[in-house]
Structure formats: structure tokens, C-alpha cells
């Protein structure tokens, strides 16, 4: 016999006059290999046509669908109901601007983070279409890739104690982004520029190092390693000074 699941879902539509945040319950018969993506669509199509949530790739790749599932920030599309109890509580990620129900504006936050950290390779050379590419050893490429794998889902920010208190903290995703460019030999930013970017309370000094971020990151990014590298780099620069 299949289970009957109860989804307790946070509901609030900010564009609706007099709407108040509340929780509504929906019941659903569990089918084999059901995941939260399919479940939410079934609920919307059959029971709650105004329910808002975000999915794009439904394959754990695009970072759209992070939400708090039974207390834990994670990707809804790759969460199987079979791994959860009969009652499943769904809340939007905290910290980010709420657009409605389970939908939050991670996109704008990450865009601003990218602008703040100047998330691009700083390189003054002009591209020469006739020339062959500059060389890079494969190990370096892989190291960059390992940080580049962040999908901007926001789970690490939602799970971070510092971020909840200091909204300007760049969070694990921001620190990881800095790591990605620090590892990249094509980026010409010098010690001074890196130092100014990370050695602040919004940067690495804001991080209390309990690694909740590492625990919830669905892409298993090497956050520990990256933070350690940044700390070494920053203290190295400080000593030189």
C-alpha cells in the first residue's frame, strides 16, 4: 500500500491585497519515485492552481528550486518523497526576497553579488582571433571548474548564521566565487585588490567557520578547501604588509 503524504506548504502572495502568510495542507497519494518537483506540480494542477514555485531543469543542474524541506535547505527537484516522512513541510528559502509562496528572488541577489565581486576574469589583453589559445595545465582547469560548479541555488546562504544577521555578508557562494577567480591565472587582479575584496566583515572575516554551508551545498563544492585557501592567502598578504 502506498502512503498518503501531507504537504504543509507556506502560502503568501504579496501582490494580493490583505493576504497573510500562512500554511496550507495538501494531501497526495505517493507514487513510486515521486520527487518534490512532480508532487508540487500535481498539487498545483489538481488542488491549488495559484501555487507559486520555481523549477527549470528539474535535473539538479540549474539551481532554481531550492527551498526548505522539513527544515533543511535543498533542491526540491532531486528530493525523493520516499526519503521523507509522511508529513512534508515546504518553506521558501529565508534571507532572499519572497516573490510568492515558495518562489524567492535568488537571481537578483546573485547578480548583485556578481557585480560586487566583479565576477569576471580581469584581463587587459585584447582577444586575438588569429592566435591559438593561451595554455593552461589541466589540473588548474579542474581546480577552477570545481569552484565554478556552484549553481547559485542559495542553500548555503539560507543555512548560514552570519548571513541572517549581516545581510551584506557575501556568504559561502560569494567566497567560493572569489576562490574561483583566485585560482585562475588569467585573472590579473593583484594582492591588494584581493585583500580589499575579502579581508572584511562582509568577506572572509564574517565567516564563523561552522560550515553549515558545506553541509547543505547540494553540489558538494569544496568549500572547506576554498575557505582555507582564502584565509592563507589573506594572512600571507597581511604578513607581507
Amino acid at each position: 500500500m502506498g502512503r498518503t503524504l501531507t504537504f504543509k506548504i507556506f502560502r503568501y502572495n504579496p501582490t494580493k491585497l490583505n493576504d497573510k502568510p500562512h500554511v496550507e495542507a495538501y494531501r497526495l497519494e505517493e507514487i513510486p519515485r515521486l520527487n518534490v518537483f512532480t508532487a508540487l506540480n500535481m498539487i498545483r494542477e489538481q488542488q491549488a492552481p495559484d501555487l507559486m514555485f520555481d523549477f527549470v531543469c528539474r535535473a539538479g543542474i540549474c539551481g532554481s528550486c531550492a527551498m526548505v524541506i522539513n527544515g533543511r535547505p535543498t533542491l526540491a527537484c532531486r528530493t525523493l518523497t520516499a526519503d521523507l516522512p509522511e508529513t512534508i513541510e515546504l518553506f521558501p528559502l529565508p534571507f532572499f526576497k519572497l516573490l510568492g509562496d515558495l518562489s524567492v528572488d535568488t537571481g537578483v541577489w546573485f547578480r548583485e553579488m556578481g557585480e560586487r565581486l566583479e565576477s569576471w576574469v580581469h584581463n587587459h589583453k585584447e582577444f586575438d582571433p588569429q592566435a591559438i589559445e593561451e595554455r593552461m595545465d589541466n589540473e588548474t582547469a579542474i581546480k577552477i571548474y570545481n569552484s565554478e560548479r556552484c549553481i547559485e541555488c542559495g542553500c548555503c546562504i539560507a543555512g548560514c548564521a552570519t548571513a541572517q544577521v549581516y545581510p551584506d555578508f557575501i556568504g559561502a557562494a560569494g567566497l567560493n566565487r572569489i576562490g574561483r577567480f583566485l585560482f585562475d591565472p588569467r585573472d590579473e587582479r593583484g594582492d591588494q585588490e584581493w585583500f580589499e575584496l575579502v579581508s572584511t566583515d562582509e568577506g572572509i572575516f564574517g565567516c564563523i567557520g561552522m560550515m553549515a554551508c558545506d553541509d547543505v551545498c547540494p553540489k558538494d563544492l569544496p568549500l572547506l578547501e576554498v575557505f582555507a585557501y582564502i584565509r592563507r592567502k589573506v594572512s600571507g598578504i597581511a604578513i607581507k604588509k
Partner: peptide, 18 residues
Amino acid sequence: PIAMREMAHFGVPWNRVK
């Protein structure tokens, strides 16, 4: 080929020949 090299210039960490 130009497009791939330009993307390398922009920052793509292409896997490389060993």
C-alpha cells in the same frame, strides 16, 4: 575554433591536453 578560443579568453576553464 575562434569561438572556443574566445570563450577561453573570457574565462571558460576548458579541459586541457595532458
